[in-house]
């Protein structure tokens, strides 16, 4: 059985990393989680972002958040990427696999995957 002691260990580890958390939220990934998004498959997309950002060691730089209906329900799951000083990027009809690719190429590599953006549907 998972123990609460493990949770305490996570706490210890995180507290020693407080300094690294500075600058958090440089890039904001926002996933639409209203009825339209959820029905279209936003939940696995969100979870893929959370998992992959963490795996890629980008937790200090990238913040993954949720929002309501963005107003383009036919393109759900929709993911918006906000980065200071850059134009907003809107990814549409996302899947967990595409999310993984976005983390790798865009969030980590700095290259927008044009074919998944709204300007290409």
């Amino acid at each position: 059985m998972k123990s609460l002691a493990e949770l305490a260990a996570i706490k210890e580890k995180m507290q020693s990393r407080v300094v690294l958390r500075e600058g958090s939220g440089e890039i904001r990934v926002v996933v639409g989680m209203a009825t339209c998004g959820i029905a279209a498959g936003a939940r696995p997309v969100l979870n893929a972002f959370v998992e992959e950002v963490s795996k890629a060691g980008l937790s200090g730089k990238v913040m993954v958040t949720q929002t309501g209906c963005i107003g383009i329900c036919q393109y759900e799951p929709v993911v918006e990427v906000f980065e200071a000083g850059k134009d907003k990027v809107t990814y549409v009809k996302m899947t967990a696999e595409k999310a993984k690719e976005v983390v790798e190429k865009h969030l980590k590599g700095g290259r927008v995957i044009e074919e998944y953006t709204i300007s290409n549907v």
Binding site: K2, E6, L7, I10, V50, E51, V53, S54
Partner: peptide
């Protein structure tokens, strides 16, 4: 919402 906490 710390990723490791969520995994736990």
């Amino acid at each position: 919402n710390n990723p490791e906490v969520l995994t736990w």
